[in-house]
Amino acid sequence: ENVVSAPMPGKVLRVLVRVGDRVRVGQGLLVLEAMKMENEIPSPRDGVVKRILVKEGEIDDTGQPLIELG
């Protein structure tokens, strides 16, 4: 899985990584606010952040691509 998608609709509060960062499975990639709760979205695998497809403050839909890993 190279693309991390939104598991729920919500607002992107914080992006915790930058392009080029090495990430490990379970590491937080970004924080979504949904139903007044903050949810940290973890990396599904080890890899390198290739692209960040959303910006802080954006509203996303379920299934929307958020981050691409390489």
Rank of each mutant, 00 (worst) to 15 (best):
L32R: 01
V3Q: 07
K36L: 12
V48C: 12
N39M: 15
V4K: 03
P65S: 07
S5Q: 11
N2A: 11
V17A: 02
L30H: 00
T62L: 13
K55N: 10
Q27M: 07
P7I: 07
G47V: 02
D61M: 13
P44W: 05
S5N: 11
A34K: 05
Q64F: 10
I59G: 05
E58R: 10
T62F: 13
V3N: 06
L13S: 05
M35N: 15
V12I: 13
P44G: 04
G63A: 07
A34F: 15
N2S: 13
R14V: 06
M37N: 08
R51K: 12
M35F: 14
L53V: 05
G10I: 06
G70V: 14
V4Q: 03
L29R: 00
G10K: 02
G26Y: 08
G63C: 10
V3K: 06
G47W: 05
D21S: 08
V48F: 13
P7C: 09
L16E: 00
L32Y: 15
V49N: 01
K50V: 14
R24M: 10
R18I: 08
G70R: 12
V19A: 07
L16M: 09
V3D: 04
L13M: 07
L32C: 06
E58S: 10
I52P: 01
Q27F: 07
L32T: 03
N2V: 14
V54A: 10
V31P: 00
P7M: 08
P65V: 10
P7N: 08
R51V: 08
R14K: 11
R45V: 14
R51S: 09
G20P: 01
R45E: 05
M8D: 00
G20M: 06
N39F: 15
V4Y: 04
P7F: 07
E40H: 09
R24V: 13
I67M: 11
E33C: 15
Q27G: 03
I41W: 03
P44C: 06
L66H: 02
K36M: 14
R14S: 04
R45M: 14
I52M: 03
V3M: 13
R22A: 11
G28K: 10
P42A: 12
L53G: 01
E56K: 09
S5D: 06
R14M: 06
V49L: 02
E56R: 09
E33T: 07
L13W: 02
E38A: 10
L69T: 01
K11V: 10
E58L: 10
D46V: 06
D21T: 07
V49F: 00
G26D: 03
M8Y: 15
V15S: 00
E68M: 11
I41E: 01
V31E: 00
I67R: 01
E38D: 06
L30G: 00
L53I: 08
V12D: 00
D61Q: 14
R18P: 00
V23I: 08
Q27S: 05
D60S: 15
R51C: 11
G26H: 05
E68I: 15
L29S: 00
D61I: 14
R24I: 12
G47E: 01
Q27D: 09
V23W: 04
D60F: 15
V17K: 00
A6V: 05
R18S: 11
K36G: 15
V19L: 07
E33L: 15
I67K: 03
G28Q: 06
